[in-house]
């Protein structure tokens, strides 16, 4: 009997929860704010769905209803991706500078 591909995805999902669990416990509490902003940025990988939605149109109608929702989602996710990674970078740079100056 063949296994439904859904089961494979479910396996990935469950195992990733465990990976996430252990990885996040090892995050130092002083970096919890950057953790939130970076998780924000990476969860915006949802943009891949938005891109597929936006590009799934025929040549005559680039702004069909479903494509338009795709474009909107792209814009929102892009705000998050750029904003999330850059603000994380900005915060982490502050932590780094200190160490250099003082040690």
């Amino acid at each position: 009997m063949e296994i439904d591909p859904f089961i494979f995805r479910l396996s990935i999902f469950i195992l990733s929860i465990f990976v996430g669990y252990y990885v996040v416990w090892s995050v130092t509490p002083s970096l919890h704010t950057p953790l939130m902003s970076v998780t924000n940025a990476i969860s915006s990988v949802i943009i891949v769905g938005a891109i597929i939605a936006a590009l799934a149109n025929n040549e005559s109608n680039f702004f069909s209803l479903s494509s338009s929702f795709g474009y909107l989602a792209i814009t929102l996710a892009a705000v998050n991706i750029f904003g999330g990674f850059l603000v994380t970078q900005r915060m982490l740079a502050m932590y780094k500078k200190k160490k250099k100056e003082k040690k």
Binding site: P5, R9, I12, F13, I14, S16, I17, F18, V19, G20, Y21, V23, V24, L35, T39, N40, I42, S43, V45, I46, V48, G49, I52
Partner: peptide, 16 residues
């Protein structure tokens, strides 16, 4: 979307 990157990320962020 049957997308691994999204599933992994979702699980990571969810547990985080």
């Amino acid at each position: 979307l049957e997308n691994t990157a999204l599933i992994i990320t979702g699980a990571l962020v969810g547990s985080s």
